[in-house]
Amino acid sequence: MGAELKPFHVTEEPLESAVYMDYVTHPGAGAVTLFAGTVREWTNRKRTMYLKYEAYVPMAEKKLAQLGEEITKKWPGSRVAIVHRIGELSISDIAVVIAVSSPHRKAAYEANEYAIEQIKKVVPIWKKEIWEDGEEWIGGQSYKPEQGSGQE
């Protein structure tokens, strides 16, 4: 799939992180950070059976591409790929892959974290948790983590 790889993509297909790591790697890069967001089984004592993601695909891909542009401006010399899977995902499936390369490692870490934070704020993608005894669209209104952040 190397020839047809879309660096800012929303897809129902399983994500292969190595493909995106290869995509951002180039001779000018001295560091690559690869983030994979995976489906967690337990959240605040609730057991997730599986997740269902949906997206406003054309806008989500546009927002991911805009985010990529923003990152390459903010961290010069970086190269970015961001892909998100939608549909039904099982425990430990990869939901999102963010690959960032940069000349030095600090920018690669910073830009990668910036990317996931922006995705959670502005990219039109939604997650539904399906439990043994119910289900709920996640997204702030009625869902409040008991403590801390880092709930991705």
């Binding site: 967001g37 993601y53 993608i125 209104q141 991705e152």
Partner: peptide, 10 residues
């Protein structure tokens, strides 16, 4: 026109 509820990707 799209109505965008709070997003929860990632």
């Amino acid at each position: 026109i799209a109505f965008i509820p709070p997003v929860s990707g990632g």
